[in-house]
Design a protein around this nucleic acid. Sequence first.
DNA 1: GCAAAGCTACCTATCAGAAGGTAGGCGTGT
DNA 2: ACACGCCTACCTTCTGATAGGTAGCTTTGC
Lengths: 191, 191
Amino acid sequence: MSLDTRSALIEKATSLVRRQGYSGFSYADLAEAVRIRKPSIHHHFPSKEDLGVAIVAAYTERFATLLEQAAAQHQDPVGRLNAYAAMYRLGIETREGCLCGVLAREMAILPPRLQIGVRQFFNLNLRWLEQVLDLGHKESQLHPLIVAHREARTVLATLQGAMSLALALDDPEVFEQAVAGLLDRLRVPEG
Amino acid sequence: MSLDTRSALIEKATSLVRRQGYSGFSYADLAEAVRIRKPSIHHHFPSKEDLGVAIVAAYTERFATLLEQAAAQHQDPVGRLNAYAAMYRLGIETREGCLCGVLAREMAILPPRLQIGVRQFFNLNLRWLEQVLDLGHKESQLHPLIVAHREARTVLATLQGAMSLALALDDPEVFEQAVAGLLDRLRVPEG
DNA sequence: GCAAAGCTACCTATCAGAAGGTAGGCGTGT
DNA sequence: ACACGCCTACCTTCTGATAGGTAGCTTTGC
């Protein structure tokens, strides 16, 4: 089993989608990137939809692992939120948007299985953020007005939007400033 | 001069891009929507890029008008921010993302003229928000920590992200909650 | 006054290239 | 022996785009 080729396909396809969108990347692009002939891709992924499902699954799995690590390495809610922001920063550096953030913009023409995958990714993020924010509330490290369920949506939306905006304006500072504005106001007013 | 057909093309093309992305919509789709033959589109817009430039220009112009109206109708910063959020709400209702928010996700494969148009749209939004937030600071209606330049980025990012997220999860409440979390914390602590 | 000339807005027919996908063959490793 | 991984060759459908034509205004010259 050529795991190498298969994972290379997933990796390169992920990069392409994150830069160009799902309908904006082609088997021809991918074949060139992996240095394989176009029809050989079908040997690993019968259809483009199958490939799409695979890259969303792999992306979500990797993201879930990173979330667990972030929770393990940081006990305090503020530290966890910073770690969460740092995950997005990686994409800014490589000029690649969040895979599911990109796919979300073409939801209407995505195969159903991909739509489901995108929603699962966002729900995973929301659940994690909700727990972090809830903890922050209980430990009084975060702004008292916080309602975790609602606030998780604000945080995810801001991170996703900040990433998209920074990439569009080709200015990493836009991301830093947008996120700083969010996190500053999430912390307790004074102290 | 058939202004009707031309503006119908711009309107329908805008809808299609907002739902499916730039590379996700085709002349065939558009021709069907406007009830015209495919090659006739070229009579009004020689190339897809020309059409793209036209719809971004029209969208930005309309948005600029709405921003002016919002500023005229609301003197207070909080009212202006609510009016700004209401503009996004329109898209949620029709299930169409922000045109430039969608285009931002495929920046890498957009013709240069379209890239410039997208950046202009965002910069227009940032300038407007900066003025509103600056006014809010001076009038002490907004949180004292606010630095307008930075905070404008947070607001734009959150609105864009909230819209994208709500459409992906097919749940308007996600937008409402995300935005409520933002605006609540932008207001003065206890006032 | 009115016809020739040109413009506008659309049509049919067609194009070359790229899209995703299929069929079948050829080496290689076990 | 045979399954795996990749190849060449090919197919269909769709892409944006062109060519050339037609009907119906509007303008122009005399």
